[in-house]
Design a protein around this nucleic acid. Structure first.
Length: 497
RNA sequence: GGGCCGUUAGCUCAGUCGGUAGAGCAGUAGCCUUUUAAGCUAUUGGCCGCAGGUUCGAUUCCUGCACGGCCCA
């Protein structure tokens, strides 16, 4: 890419780099180790009064990228950015060696430098380092986006996230918050004695969710494999193995459409806990959210998202699947009772449905269209039909529905949980049913996992399990309506350059 | 998959009722030792997304394509 010699801005910087080399300066010098970070210096010394600070001769050694450069003849200021924040640098001729002052005059916005000096405060009371020594650590050859408007073009921000991170502090804040949220979740799980595990990404069978997979190939064993759509069956094998409380925070891959809420690879936390059921998980999920909200400093349990207030105060609403269809979706009884009427109605709603689908699956599509968008405050939807829940335990009173819930917030599915089906006979039937669906053309139907049945035959204790969509959770808590804004490197179509 | 919008200088954006373009920032040269989007003076920089059509002439109008955004499914 450096061959773009026609670009004079880059050309000029390459010239500067060569001038540095001529002066015996390594423009990629690696031998400077900072002893302070910008934000730490502010935390420590912002309170100090201006008078006498410089006389205290407090040394500071920092490294970072030049984000602003204001020069006037024999002195000037720079705004230096490191991973914690910004610190101002003052460079004046009298305080620097002749070589360092010459170097200073050659610096560009974007260059990465190391600075040693002493702290003082400017006229306007800003904590600043008076440079005694300046070292260039990396010459930057490309000009940064404009200092005031930054980088707005979303396409460039996603494709060149490094630039976005340099220039747009909100992006950095979002990603730091994401890391913090994930750490909080981990802390909560470990506090509750869960064990963090890693299960395979490469699967021989497509199971654990209703989705189309990515296919790949293992040369060594001459074997077709799939990138996992969910870790569910492996995690439950670990419960069979006696680990009792396990969780995994990792990527799933689903070969489906991309939109505001979907990226082909996305992050889920799945967890399983023995000797509990789905009602426990509702409480546990509320507690988990309480914990996270408190950690990130939400005090009144309320956040704003997409212009609407969302209240996480407990207990959250519970809504039966069929009740929801009737009362929120205003769906007539004959649609609930008659498949062909449901199909006709779903088609009117422009849903991609066909006659091969089960009645329940069609109802789920109608639910998706008419009910989900109305579930703004956190809502546990319960009473999902067995036909669309092949891994969930049947309800004892009504064998046509399962002990399962999905959590919706702001119209988005954020979690899915159930009491795990641990009866190997029933599980086998469900798998066979899924195979039928698959034969009928449902590419999202589960495959038959014989080894999993074998594991159930050894005995899966009564267990509850849940998956939480981490990206969507981060969207809510960082007020980003697009999943691409909470993923560092969202998938983008190829573009010829 | 459908609809709408966008693509002009490194970045943020104007603009041309069709006659090959402009600002601010960045860059360059100069002045300036406490600036905060520093200031002042001068100045460089463009396959106007790509391909085709209409036209004497297209960055502008039309069609197609690519990429992106938003909305719908």
């Amino acid at each position: 890419m450096l061959q773009e010699t026609e670009n004079k801005l880059i050309q000029r910087r390459i010239e500067k780099l060569e001038e540095l080399r001529k002066d015996g300066i390594d423009p990629y010098f690696n031998g400077f180790s900072p002893d302070s970070f910008a934000q730490d210096l502010h935390n420590k010394y912002d309170k100090n009064v201006k008078e006498g600070l410089e006389e205290k001769n407090i040394p500071a050694k920092v490294a970072g990228r030049i984000m602003a450069y204001r020069s006037f003849g024999k002195a000037g200021f720079m705004k230096l950015k490191d991973f914690t924040g910004y610190i101002q640098i003052y460079a004046e001729k009298n305080s620097l060696s002749e070589e360092d002052f010459k170097l200073y005059k050659k610096l560009d916005v974007g260059d990465i430098i190391g600075v040693e000096g002493v702290l003082f405060k400017t006229k306007t009371d800003e904590l600043t380092i008076k440079a005694k020594k300046i070292t260039i650590l990396t010459k930057s050859l490309r000009p940064l986006p404009e200092k005031w408007h930054g980088l707005k073009d979303k396409e460039l921000r996603y494709r060149q996230r490094y630039l976005d991170l340099i220039v747009n502090d909100e992006t950095k804040e979002t990603m730091l918050k994401r890391a913090f949220i994930i750490n909080s979740i981990r802390e909560f799980m470990i506090k509750n004695r869960f064990i963090e595990v890693e299960t395979p990404m490469l699967h021989k069978l497509v199971t654990g969710a209703a989705a189309r997979p990515f296919k790949t190939y293992l040369n060594a064993l001459d074997m077709e494999l799939y990138l996992r759509i969910a870790p569910e069956l492996y995690l439950k094998r670990l419960i069979v193995g006696g680990l009792d409380r396990v969780f995994e925070i990792n990527r799933n891959f689903r070969n489906e459409g991309m939109d505001l809420k979907h990226n082909p690879e996305f992050t889920m936390m799945e967890f399983y806990i023995a000797y509990k059921d789905y009602t426990f998980l509702m409480d546990f999920t509320e507690e988990l959210f309480d914990f996270i909200l408190e950690k990130i400093g939400v005090e009144d349990n309320k956040i704003e998202f997409n212009g609407k207030e969302i209240d996480f105060s407990r207990p959250w609403k519970r809504l039966d699947f069929y009740e929801g269809l009737k009362k929120i979706g205003n769906v007539d009884d004959d649609i609930l009772n008659n498949k062909s009427k449901a199909l006709k109605y779903a088609l009117e709603l422009e849903k991609k449905v066909n006659d091969n689908m089960s009645h329940e699956k069609i109802l789920a599509e109608i639910f998706d269209a008419l009910v989900e968008p109305n579930l703004i405050n956190p809502t546990f939807v319960v009473g999902y039909p067995v036909a669309i829940s092949p891994l969930a335990k049947r309800n004892r009173k009504n064998p046509n529905i399962t002990d399962r819930f999905e959590l919706f917030v702001s119209g988005m599915e954020v979690a899915n949980a159930f009491s795990e089906l641990n009866d190997p006979f029933d599980q086998k039937e469900r798998f066979l049913k899924q195979l039928e669906e698959r034969k009928k053309g449902d590419e999202e139907a589960s495959m038959f996992d014989g080894d999993y049945i074998k594991a159930l035959e050894y005995g899966l204790p009564p267990t509850a399990g849940e998956g939480v969509g981490i990206d969507r959770l981060v969207m809510l808590l960082t007020k980003n309506p697009s999943i691409r804004d909470v993923i560092l490197f969202p998938l983008m179509r190829d573009k010829d350059e």
